[in-house]
Each structure stands twice: as structure tokens, then as C-alpha cells.
Design a protein around this nucleic acid. Structure first.
Lengths: 142, 142
DNA sequence: TATCAATCATTGACCCATCAATTATAAGGC
DNA sequence: GCCTTATAATTGATGGGTCAATGATTGATA
């Protein structure tokens, strides 16, 4: 009746199901959430970066970024300081301790992803990446 | 250094990004969350079903199911009654009002999904579905 | 120069998910 | 017939996300 069994619907269902199942498993396996690890990785690559810039890169809400950083600061992984030229901006950077910890997280993440894509050929991987990228483009347009 | 630029990592990043962006857009476009709509669709197909069975089908936590149903009940879309043979179980079913509303939601969902998969050929869709299914199988094994 | 608009960061209110603990009921072994 | 065990549902604590409102600072302008 609702015509919900078409292939399109199945794809959407898979995508949804996949993220629903994968997110919590990722956290259990790696010991950190995907968003938080993404933040740390951006910080690692940027050396020092504005909170605003960071927010644009990881693409989650301002508020969520603020809260992540606050917790990371409490854990001693991150330092924040105001831009002396313009007090509205705050720069964020990793502490040495923070940098040291990231390696292990990335290692776990890497292992996790390999398991998920187990059995995929080179060809299949690039096909998949291509298809996902096109979906992403469609979503961006909305 | 952390070897995070491999294709595998890009695929994982896309998948994550996709779900992060799609979920909120889905809700804005359709007026309902994916999980809640999934619950309603299961109820529609099952006529009457145990909360436990429903939980297994939609594959979210018990607690979340309870809370969804409570809200759906308050909105008059759902009715719950205890199994007289075994009071531990509670049956859930849609009200007439609930049934009436689902059609519109599914319509919106359908439109949304079509936009997301815009430009995909029949072939590409089945390839994608196949690849996603294989990822799902890998995730299930973990 | 005093004010208004723009920008960044923070906070509060809310939604949805998880896990762990609790409650209620049923069933089985002694 | 009681006590342990198992199962369903609920509740509480916590984490992560959104949006909307607020604060703080800066820059432009009348």
C-alpha cells in the first residue's frame, strides 16, 4: 500500500540501520565517539585553530563543539586561549598529552574500519566511495 | 603519520558524514524521526504486536521503544494493552487516527529518499544495495 | 562618539539513544 | 507451596545532537 518495498527504500533502510548499529560499536571498540575523534584529528592536523573553523570542519553544531572541547579540556587533552587581536575568537590546540593519545585511538579506528570493509576488493571500495559521494552531493543540495 | 587517508578511511568518513547530515534533514522534511516512523510502519504491518517483538524488529533499545510508545500513546496514535494470558507482555496496536497519519509520513519519506538517490541508475542502486548489505554483514559479526 | 549590526561562544531546553537498575510477572525445582 | 530464575517493561543517569536565546566583542556608520 505505501509502496515502501522498492529498492530505494531498501537502500535507505540499510544506510539508517548501518549507522544505528555502527556508531555504538565504534565507541565500544575504540573507546571514543566518532565525533570526538574527528575533532581531535582536525586539531592534530591544524596545530592551532579557531573554534569556529573547527566547527565548520567537523560539521556539527556550535553547541556540541563547545561541550566536546570543554570536556577535552577537563581531561587535559586540549588548551584554549582567546585571540588577543579579537577576543571573540578562541584558539584551540592539543596538549602534548592529547597528541600522545590520538595515535592509539586512530589505530583502533583503523582496525575497526578494516573489519567493516572486510572482503572488499580495491574495485568495490572505489565504486562504493563513488556512490556514497554522489549521495552526499544530493544531500548537500537539499 | 596516522595513515588515515586510505580509501577505507574515506568510505568510513563518508558513511558517518552522511548519517550525520541526513538524519536531521529527514526529520525536518518528513516531520518525524526515522526511528519513530519505523516503529509506526512495523505496527501497521503487524496489526498487533508485543512490545518486545517490536523492539527486536526496529532494533533500538528497550528503553527507547518504551518512551516512543508512551509519546505515541499520548498523541492518540497507538493503544497498548496487557496480554491477559501473561501480564508481562503488552500488545501494541495503531489507532484509526494513527493509521490515517502514516500514509502522509510515508509519502514524505518516499519523496525524501528519491531526492537522495537522484541520478542513480537501476544498476547503480542494486550495486549500492549489495555493497551496503555486505558491510552490514560484517558489522553484524562484530 | 554612541549606536546598531554582525560574529563567535556559551547556555538552556529539548529529543533520542545507550546502559544499568528496578519492578512486575511467570515458570520450574525443591 | 515456596524460592530461585528468567523475562518484559519501566525508570534513572548519562552522552550526544539540534535549535533558539543570550553574552561578549568588534566594526561600521549616522
Amino acid at each position: 500500500m505505501f509502496n515502501c518495498l522498492k529498492e530505494e527504500e531498501l537502500i535507505a533502510a540499510r544506510l539508517f540501520e548501518l549507522s544505528k548499529q555502527t556508531m555504538p560499536k565504534f565507541e565500544r571498540c575504540t573507546g571514543i565517539s566518532q565525533s570526538r575523534l574527528e575533532i581531535l584529528r582536525e586539531l592534530f592536523e591544524a596545530e592551532e585553530i579557531t573554534q569556529r573553523e573547527l566547527q565548520k570542519k567537523v560539521n556539527i553544531d556550535h553547541a556540541a563543539v563547545t561541550r566536546h572541547l570543554k570536556q577535552l579540556e577537563e581531561k587535559g587533552m586540549v588548551i584554549r586561549r582567546k585571540n588577543p587581536e579579537d577576543n571573540r575568537f578562541t584558539y584551540v590546540s592539543l596538549t602534548e598529552e592529547g597528541k600522545a593519545k590520538i595515535a592509539a585511538y586512530c589505530e583502533e579506528k583503523h582496525r575497526f574500519i578494516s573489519k567493516i570493509l572486510n572482503g572488499f576488493s580495491e574495485n568495490e571500495r572505489s565504486t562504493l566511495l563513488n556512490l556514497l559521494t554522489r549521495i552526499q552531493e544530493n544531500v548537500d543540495k537539499m
